[in-house]
Design a protein around this nucleic acid. Structure first.
Lengths: 236, 236
DNA sequence: CGTAATATTGAGCCTCTTCAAGCGCCGTGG
DNA sequence: CCACGGCGCTTGAAGAGGCTCAATATTACG
């Protein structure tokens, strides 16, 4: 977390930009070019980046911290779409469609976020095909995940969704596999997990205690879940 | 529909390719190039193009007819993902990820489908940035739709989903707006509509009769639905 | 450290599913 | 062309799973 830079306060921007996956294949000159057009801003926790109806003409690239993207249906129901971390970007759909956003974006914790104006982005996409291709890759993966999510929402019950979510987390957070029991940390509040899974917080809570009394998991403080019986969760 | 070509049986392939959205911005020479690598095949009704687990290294572009993409969950539940028509393509996700498909694709009616090998596609994406960009646009739109679908599945009940689906169809099939009552034609069997909406055929059937006795719609033969009271459906 | 947001637990309800049976439509083969 | 068979569609009754509403307990942030 400590930083000792030549120009304090202003980090080496082209290095940051180079760490972003979609720009990862550019050379130093090109990175410097992009870095010149990018604005880095700090945001505090629970700050709304944009809301439905607004159209902000920027691609936002997360350098540190986390952002949640969610939607509020006409009936007032809040649905968490996804959580973004370092290297992820948002604002791409409004770039393509030109329409104002139909969703909300807020920081989950203090975050540093780069913004690149849509006009500049268009420029780079035309000049650097690898950027376009990288972006295509990213969207394709997101699409695959979202389509899978639709199937799960349509077909599977609450237990299956929760188990799948825990196992997915376990796969991402694979640390040292010495331990027989895996422990995962929920990246968001339980109520947000529930929203993400299309459930009410009550149902999620009940299923967790049910899993626990079945001996499959153990709830621990600070959003930590110890998974004891992986196979049991898998075959839900 | 009539065609008078120099080589009968083999339609003007570069013209067909040019009509595909992602290739629409290429010039004649480039189109001819692509046309030379593309294979046009006819498929009969209810033919499976590929299944889960298979990896066919081709981008498939629909020239005529319709294709359904669906998934079968571990519990045997069949979930219809989307229906493709003229100009749409599939096989893009396996192109990006390199992984075998996790879903099925079958023709709904007799269809003419072009196939382009992944190696060739990669070639064109590098040579013609506009193609990459067009593809990016397409995926972005699909992603937006799918994310909206997730919200609906998570938050809204059966009636809302069905009403939304009917109104969406009405928007697409907007013919002559002289009539006060709109009539839409379901593009697929009711059981497939149910699958698409994440419902059982029974529930769909019941809701339809319920809508009908409320005076909002009128069911007609041949998958035709006459929408009498649009506002009523909108405010579900 | 105090307060507000989050999490848990309980009871009742409501929607959708499941299982089962009957009907109707359409395409096939005689 | 008609008869048959199958699949899709409808309708009914029973059941389960998740939601709502409400009260309490706990956590986490300022």
């Amino acid at each position: 977390m400590e930083h000792h830079e030549s120009h304090p306060g202003h980090a080496p921007l082209e290095v940051l930009v180079g760490r972003v996956p979609i720009f990862s294949q550019l050379d130093d000159v090109e990175l410097k070019d992009i870095a010149g057009r990018v604005k880095l801003r700090h945001h505090r926790r629970n700050e709304q980046l944009y809301g439905a109806g607004e159209s902000n003409p920027h691609l936002m690239i997360i350098h540190s911290g986390h952002v949640k993207v969610y939607r509020i249906s006409e009936s007032g129901h809040e649905q968490l779409i996804r959580v973004l971390g370092e290297g992820d970007f948002l604002g791409d759909t409004s770039f393509i469609s030109g329409a104002p956003a139909d969703h909300f974006a807020s920081t989950l914790d203090a975050a540093d976020i780069c913004t690149l104006h849509h006009d500049d982005l268009r420029d780079y996409l035309l000049r650097f095909p690898t950027v376009t291709y990288k972006m295509l890759e990213t969207l394709s993966n997101r699409l695959e995940n979202t389509e899978r999510q639709v199937s799960i929402f349509a077909g599977e019950g609450a237990e299956h969704r929760i188990a799948g979510y825990l196992l997915e987390l376990a796969g991402e957070q694979r640390t040292s596999k010495e331990q027989d029991t895996t422990t995962v940390v929920l990246p968001i509040a339980k109520k947000d997990v529930a929203s993400f899974l299309g459930l009410t917080p009550e149902t999620l809570s009940r299923k967790f205690t049910q899993f626990e009394s079945a001996g499959w998991i153990r709830m621990q403080p600070r959003r930590t879940v110890e998974i004891i019986n992986v196979p049991a969760l898998q075959q839900l």
